[in-house]
């Protein structure tokens, strides 16, 4: 039986087919093949969410896992990220949680935290 996957590596969303022999087709690039292989063994997702800050004008700042983490760890990761509070000015890419759940993946800011200058 042929299994169909929708590749989520990029917004193109290729329909990738895997037959019984494990032959992969329908992907428009190499990453699609890797995605489907992973999806069959250890599906992973990038988690994007927010963290609290102490700054009134920026109550939340967005963060992401720098790499995809195992799908099964998403909820645990959310629990940890939900406890983070940013208390100082920080730049995009700065780490807010290192090596989350021992995945080897850092959680980083995706928004610069800069208090507005009063001109």
């Amino acid at each position: 039986m042929t299994k169909e996957f929708i590749c989520i590596v990029c917004p193109r969303g290729c329909h990738v087919l895997v037959d019984d022999a494990g032959n992969i087709s329908g992907n428009q690039c190499k990453r699609g093949e890797t995605y489907v292989k992973n999806e069959m063994t250890n599906p992973k997702r990038v988690v994007t969410t927010t963290v609290r800050t102490v700054f009134e004008e920026i109550p939340r700042a967005s963060v992401k896992t720098l790499e995809a983490i195992p799908k099964g760890l998403i909820y645990q990761a959310m629990d940890l990220i939900n406890q983070v509070v940013i208390t100082k000015e920080m730049k995009i890419g700065e780490v807010v949680i290192e090596n989350i759940l021992n995945t080897g993946v850092n959680v980083v800011l995706t928004k610069e935290i800069k208090r507005k200058e009063v001109k």
Binding site: T50, V51, R52, R60, N82, Q83, V85
Partner: peptide, 10 residues
């Protein structure tokens, strides 16, 4: 308008 605030309160 809202049912809850997100994130754990410090």
């Amino acid at each position: 308008l809202f049912v809850a605030e997100t994130k754990v309160k410090p």
